[in-house]
């Protein structure tokens, strides 16, 4: 076990090599099978890989900056995700204060609490206080049309896009004996395992996929992709045990847990997209869609990962 920054450099070096390999492979495939740029799958693959470069560079920059960098990065992701979410919700002008408060008070306050490592408050602030006060803002306008739907959707958006997402930087505040100063590696572990699971599911699905997993939710997810993806990502997670406080077995089980949460998170957020009749949450991440499309698995796994680590390792 080296120093935290050495291990982080090693991890990023590995990710960098994977991306170089992926870019080279994609260039080769396009040269071979899509010289005129007409193969939709390969062009999308290339856009996805380019976006991965940007995501990895942003994460590296945030990690080097430290706690503030990670909090600012995930705060901005929450902002973009909540913006995508609210765009598709049933809100009207009577919710204007409630929405303004969600974006400009609740979101920054939640991340400020995480920055101050005030566990007792950031873990109940949105579930209790935003939950009670946001409906009050809306009810004061006196518009009762679809009132429960409006406030419930706003609260759901805050829980998913702000509360759950803020549990990623909250990992920095855990005091794990013998792991001091290395918490940023826990974030790297979570993000690499969950996101690689998405990538592995995509790759296995494209290579072997035959049986659709949930045709009404996500046309591209297959049983073969899901099994191959979860197992591959968990193997990768086990092999990354040296950056965590876990033993190899614990790292493998932890990976199985978070990849499952991630996969179901993807299905849940797909269900919402289908209901609203859209294919992607947004368009800002080329090849992937919106921020929620990329973060769905992370937001579903982060709170569970956080609590399991907190109760078992601190």
């Amino acid at each position: 076990m080296g120093s935290a920054s050495n291990d982080l450099a090693l991890v990023f070096g590995g990710v960098f090599l994977v991306l170089v390999f992926a870019s080279a492979l994609s260039a080769f495939l396009r040269h071979r099978y899509s010289p005129d740029g007409r193969n939709v799958v390969l062009e999308n693959l290339d856009a996805r890989i380019m976006s991965w470069w940007a995501i990895v560079l942003l994460l590296a920059f945030a990690f080097i900056w430290g706690k503030t960098g990670v909090i600012v990065l995930f705060g901005l992701c929450s902002f973009a995700a909540l913006r995508e979410f609210v765009t598709l919700t049933t809100t009207n002008q009577a919710d204007h204060w409630a929405l303004a408060a969600s974006f400009f008070v609740v979101l920054p306050l939640q991340y400020t609490l995480v920055w101050h490592e005030w566990y007792g408050l950031y873990s109940i602030f949105i579930p209790v206080y935003a939950f009670l006060f946001i409906p009050i803002f809306s009810v004061l306008r006196g518009d009762t049309r679809q009132y429960l739907v409006r406030i419930a959707e706003t609260q759901w958006g805050l829980m998913i896009c702000v509360f759950c997402a803020s549990h990623v930087p909250a990992l920095l505040s855990l005091d794990i004996p013998g792991y001091e100063g290395r918490n940023v590696l826990l974030i790297a572990f979570l993000v690499i395992v969950v996101q690689s699971s998405d990538v592995f599911q995509y790759v296995w699905g494209k290579l072997l996929g035959k049986h659709k997993l949930a045709p009404s939710l996500s046309p591209s997810k297959t049983v073969e992709g899901a099994i191959g993806g979860l197992l591959s990502a968990s193997l990768l997670g086990a092999s990354l045990f040296w950056i965590t406080p876990f033993s190899p077995w614990q790292a493998a089980l932890m990976s199985l847990l978070i990849t499952h949460m991630g996969m179901f998170g993807g299905l849940v957020l797909s269900a919402i997209k289908r209901d609203r009749g859209v294919k992607d949450w947004g368009h800002l991440i080329a090849g992937h869609g919106g921020f929620i499309d990329r973060l769905d698995s992370v937001v579903f796994s982060a709170p569970v990962f956080f609590h399991v680590v907190r109760y078992s390792w601190t």
Binding site: R83, V86, H96, F103, G282
Partner: peptide, 9 residues
């Protein structure tokens, strides 16, 4: 009639 804009796509 509103003063504060809310972010939407």
């Amino acid at each position: 009639g509103e003063v504060v804009p809310i972010p939407l796509i």
